[in-house]
Amino acid sequence: MARFKDPNFVAAAFQPYLQPGEQIRNVAFGVKQPSMALIIPLFALAILPGAIATALLTKEYVVALTDRRVLVLHFKGSKIQVQEVLEYSLYNHAPVESSTGPVFTHIKINDPARPFVAKFHRAGMPGNREQAMAIAAALGQPPYPQQPPPHPPQYQQQYPPPPQQYPGQPQ
């Protein structure tokens, strides 16, 4: 049932996409299945082709929570052949909806430019449920305050104060 047996193998897949000094905190495996409005007619038409079609249309993701962002890898195959990389900053991200049930943890990021929705089965990977809940909790918190840009003080533009009186203005 488990898609991956070793979480360290999944965490290693994120190494090429980490920024210098970035640390991974949690890793989880999730899937996005097609809509039930499509699955039910496919299964009603033919069971075996419907199951194959559902499997072909299911997208697989591994999600990593780091100390500064959430990285999402859309992949295929057992060797985690990356198809697409999405990232969401913890300092400034779109509203997130998350829920946890007895089997699945759902995470939905309502970003208009890069929406993400996936569900994480508790048996998808060892500790997948706890990892997914930790990622959902980190995304569920309000975004951290934006840090000021690290410009040195000498490059910050200083405007002179407006003159109180124009030259030549009668006293």
Binding site: L45, A46, L48, P49, A53, L56, L57, K76, Q83
Partner: peptide, 20 residues
């Protein structure tokens, strides 16, 4: 990926219906 997945899915359903 849909460039090959959609034709495969259609072919599967056509074969299933023809077999039926």
């Amino acid at each position: 990926d849909m460039a090959w997945k959609i034709p495969v899915i259609i072919l599967l359903f056509v074969l299933a219906i023809a077999l039926g």
